[in-house]
Amino acid sequence: MEIERKYIPKTLPENLAQYKHHKIEQAYLNTAPVVRIRKQDNEYFLTYKGGGMMAREEYNLPLNEKSYNHLLTKADGNIITKTRYYIPIHNGLTAELDIFEGKFTNMTLVEVEFSSIDEANSFNPPEWFGKDVTHDGRFHNSYLSQIDCCLGK
């Protein structure tokens, strides 16, 4: 089960290079239910996500590079590219800050994963997080994969 809240950051933390980060490329084979392939640095995954906004099923299966590249030719829509930064915040939680590239350059999202729905509902975000878009499906990457123009432009 994936339980997360998502925000549009008002500002970005300084010195992002100091934080652990990954280059991510992902594409969608299906959006309802979500079936996604992802390259994260030199690792490859196939992911299934069930329906929902803040809480939904999620299963990750490993792929090899050859399988990823084969499935990439079968993907529909936009290929999403971004750098994800892992920024420690309060109570042992980690903010995952995505800075998008390509078609979605200048778009940023930050999300936090939780161990329970109660924990997610009681979360008090840092000031820099900005607007909560957890329940707005337009900010799911699967939606971004299907649109002609980026949000907020």
Rank of each mutant, 00 (worst) to 15 (best):
R5E: 07
K6F: 02
Y7K: 02
K10S: 14
T11A: 12
L12F: 05
P13K: 03
P13G: 07
Q18A: 12
Q18E: 14
Y19K: 12
Y19M: 11
H21W: 00
H22G: 00
K23W: 09
E25Y: 08
Q26Y: 02
A27W: 00
Y28V: 02
L29T: 06
L29F: 01
N30M: 13
T31W: 01
P33N: 09
V34Y: 00
R36A: 04
R38K: 14
N42Y: 12
E43Y: 13
Y44Q: 04
F45R: 09
Y48V: 14
Y48M: 13
E58S: 10
Y59Q: 14
N60R: 06
N60C: 11
L61M: 15
P62G: 10
E65G: 02
E65S: 13
K66W: 09
S67G: 06
S67W: 02
A75K: 01
G77L: 07
G77F: 07
I80D: 07
T81G: 06
K82P: 06
R84V: 12
Y85D: 08
Y86S: 13
P88M: 05
H90N: 14
H90C: 05
L93R: 07
L93E: 06
A95K: 03
L97V: 08
G102D: 09
G102F: 10
G102A: 04
M107E: 10
T108Y: 02
L109H: 01
V110H: 04
E111T: 01
E111L: 03
V112K: 00
F114Q: 00
S122F: 01
F123Y: 07
P125Y: 01
E127D: 15
G130E: 07
K131D: 11
D132R: 06
T134W: 09
D136P: 09
F139M: 00
H140W: 08
N141T: 09
N141P: 00
Y143M: 05
L144W: 10
S145E: 04
Q146G: 09
I147W: 07
C150F: 05
K153S: 14
K153C: 15
K153E: 14
